[in-house]
Design a protein around this nucleic acid. Structure first.
Length: 204
DNA sequence: GGAAGGATGCACT
DNA sequence: GTGCATCCTTCCA
């Protein structure tokens, strides 16, 4: 296992406050090892989805389908799903089994394996921002639907490490979530968090 | 077997 | 800043 002493464990993911976890994930490093290539990025933007009490959440009102089943796993499980038939979105399940809470990773700042990321992105225009968007970061990191259900506390392919340099609260900005207008009043909850003045956040 | 939807990204003006 | 293509998965009949 790589750098296991810094890897986040059950005691981090299993807490009940998904909003707090979303906030704390900012500044931490997400690692992937895909095809023996190590890539890593600092998490710069997250959103909290609070299970069944949250209209924006796939699991709200206890909706349980094949697609959302992973959200009900225990904290620390990866929930990867396909949006618009094209984009993979990467979530971290939080809380205990059966709750349906999750944190969406919306953006990262690449720190390792830049070449590999660039290759994977292979976008025609000058896409310097490799991870500034939920669909982009999964592609850059090589995450795909096959990683759905991965246990981030034990996997050798994907995991998250605590950061050396904790962020000061003043750099953390909270805002409304994105792209969930259908969620009515819950769309206004300030459950999106990002690192202020960081260029690797999504376009907003 | 068919229809609908979907937590976006990109190209273009 | 704005408009729209997009296409696979999921759900239901």
């Amino acid at each position: 296992m790589i750098n296991s002493d810094k890897r986040l464990t059950d005691s981090f993911y299993s807490r009940s406050d998904v909003v707090l976890i979303a906030r704390e994930l900012l500044g931490m490093k997400i690692f992937t090892v895909i095809d023996n290539v190590v890539t890593a990025g600092i998490i710069t933007e997250t959103e909290a989805y609070a299970g069944m009490n949250d209209k924006a959440c796939h699991a709200h009102l206890g909706r349980f389908t094949k697609r959302t089943a992973t959200m009900y796993e225990k904290g620390g499980t990866a929930y990867v799903y396909l949006c618009y038939g094209i984009h993979h979105l990467f979530n971290v399940v939080t809380n205990v089994e059966g709750k349906g809470d999750a944190v969406l990773i919306r953006a990262i700042e690449p720190v390792e394996g830049m070449e590999a990321m660039q290759e994977r992105r292979a976008v025609k225009s000058a896409a310097i921002k490799l991870g500034s968007g939920p669909g982009k970061l999964t592609q850059a990191l090589g995450i795909n639907r096959g990683h759905n259900g991965t246990d981030l506390t034990t996997s050798e392919e994907i995991w998250i490490e605590a950061t050396d340099k904790p962020l000061s609260n003043s750099r953390i900005v909270s805002a409304k979530r994105i792209g969930i207008d259908y969620a009515e009043e819950d769309a206004d909850l300030p459950w999106r968090f990002y690192i202020g003045q960081n260029k690797s956040v999504s376009k907003y």
